[in-house]
């Protein structure tokens, strides 16, 4: 198949970017979207042009490194799918495909389609952990966790940190990402000691990173590759309210 591509090219963080048009022949329908970009890049290099920089690594939908906005949708037309898992069979011959980086105030563009998602690391760093040092852990089965609780915690923990939730949110809110971690740890007995501080700190960091407010449009859940539920956000709200208003502090 033949494709017309319009791709965002931006030299570095400070430069202005623009959409550049490319034509690509001989695209195989079984190619993954990133393999299509590989093909384009090989064509560009052969013509001595600079290839398009895009994020990718594991190419099996788990590392969370890839992610672009395809025709105005984060990770492209398939729901709950990362860009690397998207295949060209989802597109038509002679289609024009518009490819832009994830955009949000919290995700500055580094180059072309690569964005800086360091904010996510800083949110986790602010409290998204259990403060247990190596060697402190008790025997694992002394902390029973019910099957349903463990499964629910897993559902939240499944987040791959790709940032599609932020890119797809009209408010550029990182509530889904932040809440998934808060919820996972709030559910587990071994992480409950720190739940109040954790919620307060992580939300404070989230705000510091220039992410917007969650207005519960629920778009994030639809585009999330792992289908993380928006109820995590409600749970985060609960944890925040509990920590702020219900707990008596000394």
């Amino acid at each position: 198949m033949k494709l017309y591509l319009k791709i965002w090219r931006q030299k570095d963080r400070v430069s202005e970017g623009k959409l550049v048009e490319y034509t690509l022949d001989n695209v195989n329908t079984h190619m993954s979207f990133l393999e299509m970009l590989d093909t384009l890049n090989n064509q560009l290099i052969t013509n001595n042009e600079e290839p398009v920089e895009f994020d990718h690594d594991c190419r099996e939908g788990i590392c969370g490194q890839c992610g672009v906005v395809i025709n105005g949708i984060a990770h492209g037309p398939l729901k709950n799918t990362t860009t690397c898992q998207l295949h060209m069979r989802e597109f038509k011959d002679n289609e024009t495909i518009l490819i832009e980086p994830f955009r949000a105030a919290g995700f500055p563009v580094k180059k072309d389609l690569k964005v800086d998602r360091g904010a996510f690391d800083r949110i986790i760093s602010s409290g998204g952990y259990v403060s247990v040092n190596t060697g402190q852990a008790p025997e694992a089965n002394t902390i029973p966790v019910g099957h349903e609780t463990a499964e629910a915690a897993f559902d939240s923990a499944a987040c791959i940190g790709c940032g599609a939730c932020v890119a797809t949110c009209k408010n550029g809110s990182a509530a889904l990402f932040t809440s998934a971690k808060i919820t996972q740890l709030a559910l587990l007995p071994q992480a409950k000691e720190e739940r109040d501080q954790r919620a307060l700190k992580m939300i404070a960091q989230m705000d510091k990173e220039q992410f917007g407010h969650c207005s519960n449009t629920e778009a994030c859940e639809v585009e999330c590759p792992q289908g993380i539920s928006v109820l995590n956000i409600a749970r985060m709200n609960y944890e925040y309210n509990r920590a702020s208003f219900l707990k008596f502090k000394k």
């Binding site: 952990y129 259990v130 247990v132 190596t134 060697g135 402190q136 852990a137 008790p138 694992a140 902390i143 029973p144 966790v145 019910g146 099957h147 609780t149 463990a150 499964e151 915690a153 897993f154 923990a157 996972q184 740890l185 587990l188 071994q190 992480a191």
Partner: peptide, 11 residues
């Protein structure tokens, strides 16, 4: 160690 960190193993 992993359980203490909150790794949600199958139960």
């Amino acid at each position: 160690q992993a359980v203490a960190q909150g790794v949600p193993f199958g139960r």
